[in-house]
Design a protein around this nucleic acid. Sequence first.
DNA 1: CCCAGCATGTAAGAGGTTACATGATTGC
DNA 2: GCAATCATGTAACCTCTTACATGCTGGG
Lengths: 198, 198
Amino acid sequence: MSLDHALLVSLLEKPSSGYELARRFDRSIGYFWHATHQQIYKVLARMEEAGWISGEVQAGEAAPDRKLYSVSRTGRSEVSRWLAEPTEPEGIRDSLMVKLRGAAFGDAGALIPELEHHRALHANRLTAYRVIEARDFAGVRSTSPGVQSTGTLDYQRALQYQVLKSGIRYEQGWLEWCEETLGLLHGLKQVKPRRPSK
Amino acid sequence: MSLDHALLVSLLEKPSSGYELARRFDRSIGYFWHATHQQIYKVLARMEEAGWISGEVQAGEAAPDRKLYSVSRTGRSEVSRWLAEPTEPEGIRDSLMVKLRGAAFGDAGALIPELEHHRALHANRLTAYRVIEARDFAGVRSTSPGVQSTGTLDYQRALQYQVLKSGIRYEQGWLEWCEETLGLLHGLKQVKPRRPSK
DNA sequence: CCCAGCATGTAAGAGGTTACATGATTGC
DNA sequence: GCAATCATGTAACCTCTTACATGCTGGG
């Protein structure tokens, strides 16, 4: 597992307080690794004790104090170590799939609102990603190796864009599947109607 | 959460022992909801106590005894209740994405073997799914509502096929993304080589 | 005055992983 | 004899979620 590493990478991108990180995990990195603030504070404390990060308290006038964390040299080398270490792909855990298989023994029609809900959510996320794409990555060419050196900023951006593109692909796949499945369920409702009355 | 429900659905499809379920969770349902045997035994015990399932010990001659579980009436109604209850889509947790973003602060080249590994795994799974598709769902037409009634078996099969198709879509998406990302990383290695010596 | 937002935590419990434990049979 | 497969579990540990707790500020 590695909320630890998700936080380290986040802190490398920008030193932050726990609160800021928690908000960042509702967007951005959080699209690919979710965490609550309680968890974040605990892991930050553990990592500070381990010496991977160091927190500096900033007294706020007219605002609460905040602990600004940044990654130490040890933390950086931990990230490098982790990058080189192989990781297995996470298994899928999708209750919708289980429900679909369960629908054969219950009311498949009951899944229609559920699927519509999922379709809407995935459509929303896709739109959000598209907005980010247009805003932040308008000028990044896809995969072409690039003839002249494009600098270190474009390097980081290219990687971030690639992450975003996985999100886009993912949401689009879901969206198409939801459409298809809704079509199927509407068809099945005709074919095998549930007993109409009690 | 719902390993409970995944097990119930599995048992509805076929009454089984814990051991059998554990093996089934390495294929089939397990592609969409993973679980170890330890966990399965614990949940089965809990569900039996709750009265959702009942286990019947079968004495084996020349084989160990096994407890064959089947879903009770209460269990069935629990499934129906759960089917109608809305569920949020599970959040993604993908360390590869975090790693890609982290690669901007480390050695992006170190991710190449990792990505090749992922590509191979997703390619394997995709092939496995395609085999199942060809074997079990050769004659199922995609989404067309079907003019004449096709019976209750085709009903269940259509749902199972739809689940499989989500798996196919998922693996294919990953595969394409891995290819694309490998192309990008090979390009970047040229553009921004890491310091060659210590 | 109350609610929303900023900011940081503690505590209990459910869910999940890893390691350990046992005992029988079949095939090499 | 030894490894693999069948078959069922216990125990320790870690992660993650949910609920609770505190205190300050600015706007309606």
